[in-house]
Design a protein around this nucleic acid. Sequence first.
RNA 1: GCCGGGGUAGCUCAGUGGUAGAGCGCAGCCCUGAAAAGGCUGGCGUAGACAGUUCGAUUCUGUCCCCCGGCA
Length: 317
Amino acid sequence: MEEHKVSSKILLIGGPTGVGKSHIALDVALRINGEIISADSMQFYREINIGTDKVPVHMREKVAHHLIDHISLKDSFDVHSFVNEALLHVRKILQAGKVPLIVGGSGLYLRILMKGIFPMPEVEAGKQAEVRRYLGEQGLCGLYSLLKKTDPEAAGRIHEKDRKRITRALEVYILTGKNISFWQRQKSENPLAKTGKPVYFILTRNKEVMYNRINRRVDYMFDSGWIDEVEKLKEEGYADMLVYKAPIGYAEILDFLAGRYNLEELKEIVKKKTRRFAKKQLTWFRKEDGKWIEIENEQETADMIMREFMKFDGEGV
RNA sequence: GCCGGGGUAGCUCAGUGGUAGAGCGCAGCCCUGAAAAGGCUGGCGUAGACAGUUCGAUUCUGUCCCCCGGCA
C-alpha cells in the first residue's frame, strides 16, 4: 500500500492503427522514465515485421519495449495470456521505480486489462483443441440451438450467425460443465487497478488525415520488401499460420504470389482492409472511458499526455 | 460511314408497363480466453437527353448524344 504512494501510476495509450501512438509513447517514456508494454496483437509475433509496422529496433534501444517479438506464430496466444504477461511486466517496472506505458491498438486487450477477465479453470490445451475441432465440424444451426438449450442467456446476446462466439460459449460449457454465462457472472480477476493507478488516453486523428497516413504507410511497407518477407515465410512453411492469425496483408500477399491479382490490386486491397480496420478500432475505442486526444501535432500531444499524467493523482483522468 | 451490344446508386451490373434492386465500396454498430479475428444494420438514385404511344414509361417507339466490339 505505502509503496504505491510513491508512484504506481500506469499510462495506457490506445487508438487506431497509424495515428502515431508509438512515437508519442516513446517520447513520453523518455521523459517520465518509463518502459513500454505493447498491446498489439500482431507485434507479438517475431516472424512478421514489415506488415505489422513493428516498432523499429532503434526505438527499442532507447526505451525498453516488452511483449514485442516474444512469441512465434506457431504459439497460441490470447487475451488471457496477454493480461497475465502484461501484469507481470507492470509489476516489475513499478518495482524498479519506473513508469509502465501500455501502448497498442488491440482494444479488447486494453479493455480487459482495465476491466479484468472472468476466471475460468485451466483446461488442458489438447482437450480444448479437440473440442474446437469437433465444434468446427458441426452445422451452425445445430450449434446455435444447442447454445439456446444450454445457455439461453448467452444465446440472447450472441447473434445466430456469429460462429466464433457460439463456438467459444459451447466450448466453455463442454470443457467446464458450466455455461459461459455462469463464468462471466463470477467476479473478474486480474484488474490492472489492483496493481496500480491506470490513466487511459485514446489517440485519434482527423479521419481523412488518418486514411492518408494509412495509404502512404502501406506503399512504404511494399517499398520496404514486404513481399519478400512473405515469400520467405511461405518457403519456411508459415503460410497456414499467416492465414489463421490473419494479420492484414499477409494472406493477400500470398494470394498475389499465387497470381490471384496484380500488384496494384494487391495494394488497393491492403489499403482498404487497413482503413476498414482503423474504422473498426475507432468504433471500439469510442466506448472506452479514456481521455480522447485528436492529434494535430505529435509534440503537443506528447506534452499534453505528460501534463495530464503528472497531474493525475488516482482519481479520474 | 455501316452492323451489333450497351448507357440504371461511388464502382460492376440485375430487373420490371404502375416512379427500382444486388454485390463491392462507404457509413453506423456489436464484441470478455483466435481480436489486424468474428458478427449485425443502412440504398429517393434528375434510370444519357428530348419527343411520342399509354390512364401511367426506367421498362414500348422514334430522334439525338456518348461508350464498347465488328466491318469498311
